[in-house]
């Protein structure tokens, strides 16, 4: 699997939803969570930096590697929900 250089993307919590659909996780055909769609009006869409097809390596510094889908999506959801930060940091990568 060719992973291109990771990029840190900071998405501000500027809307009521993050607005991404994520597929994949450990023990599936897509072992790292991949952005499947981006919903109009969500934070990801408004900030304009995330792209469909990118994989998410880390969320707020927490590695998603080896996490199953349910746990990885829980990490993302909790990063969005926490009031400690008004943004979510994604370490993302393009896949060849």
């Amino acid at each position: 699997m060719g992973v291109m250089e990771p990029t840190l993307v900071r998405v501000p919590k500027c809307a009521s939803t993050l607005g991404i659909a994520v597929e994949g996780g450990a023990n599936t055909r897509q072992p790292l969570p991949r952005i499947a769609t981006i919903q109009k009006g969500g934070c990801a869409h408004i900030s304009g930096q995330l792209r469909v097809g990118q994989v998410i390596l880390e969320v707020n510094g927490v590695s998603l590697k080896g996490m199953e889908h349910r746990d990885a999506t829980r990490v993302i959801a909790e990063a969005f929900k926490t009031k400690d930060k008004d943004y979510v940091d994604f370490l993302i990568a393009e896949i060849n």
């Binding site: 993050l18 994949g24 023990n27 999506t73």
Partner: peptide
């Protein structure tokens, strides 16, 4: 490779 082919597809979660 064979193992990869037998892995199930993932569900999709909207966040």
């Amino acid at each position: 490779r064979e193992k990869r082919l037998t892995l199930p597809p993932s569900e999709i979660t909207l966040l």
